[in-house]
Computed example of a mutant assay.
Amino acid sequence: MPDPNPAVLDYLATRRSPGAKTFTGPVPDRGQLMQILTLATRVPDHGKLEPWRLVVLERAAMARLADLAEKRARALNGDAEKIEKGRGQFDRGQLAVVVISSPKDAEKVPVAEQVLSAGALCMNIVHAATAAGWGACWLSGWPSHDAQFRALAFGCADHETVAGIIHIATPGPMAADRPRPDLSRLVSWG
């Protein structure tokens, strides 16, 4: 017989991601962040490969990455919107955890499962930070998907990608909830 956990069910039923643009200080200190990351790394990880790694961005790194994103956007002949989108999350960010998907060469564990483990880690960081009382927002943006930016910003090797950039800080005002999926359109029974 199941033993439900009403507090967790209520959390999941009401969870929303606050907009990172509304975040303010303070942010978690290193001890608090390590507690969040310790909880978050309890993810599906077939073969105990740890097919991901983490890069913590503090304020000084954010300023450097904002400049790097602008430089890269200009090299790509990006317009003002592309430059702003590239700089934006780093200009406004105070603390973020970059989850790097780093699949290992493992015969018994498909790369797809390793990549999904990195995605699960992103969601767990959001949940753990939120449970600890912080605002957490999972972003990416074009710089995350640009191989040259990833290499310069996060030291990504050719086989590595950015699964997400999780911004963590004091949440600002919560926006109205967004419409949720109509499960009658998306769920089939076989």
Rank of each mutant, 00 (worst) to 15 (best):
I100K: 04
D177K: 09
R59P: 01
W138I: 11
E113V: 04
P18C: 10
G190C: 10
S102W: 01
A129T: 12
G47P: 03
R185T: 15
M62V: 07
P6S: 14
A169Y: 06
D158N: 12
R16C: 11
L12M: 11
A7N: 13
E84S: 15
S101F: 01
V109S: 02
P171E: 14
T161P: 02
S17K: 01
K48L: 14
L12F: 13
G78V: 06
V162Q: 03
V162P: 03
W52A: 07
R59W: 04
N124C: 06
V8D: 14
R16W: 06
L76F: 06
A157C: 11
I83F: 02
V126Y: 04
R74N: 11
L9F: 14
I166V: 12
L39F: 06
S184I: 10
I83N: 01
E70Y: 02
V98F: 05
L95R: 01
V187N: 01
L186Q: 14
A132P: 01
V98M: 03
R178F: 15
R15I: 12
T22N: 08
M34A: 11
M1D: 14
E58Y: 08
T41K: 05
F23P: 04
A128G: 00
Q89G: 13
K104S: 08
V162L: 01
W142H: 07
L33D: 04
I165F: 07
Q32A: 15
R53W: 09
G25W: 05
H127D: 14
A128V: 15
G119D: 02
V115F: 08
P51Q: 08
D29A: 11
A120E: 05
R74Y: 07
D45F: 05
T41L: 06
Q114H: 04
G19I: 15
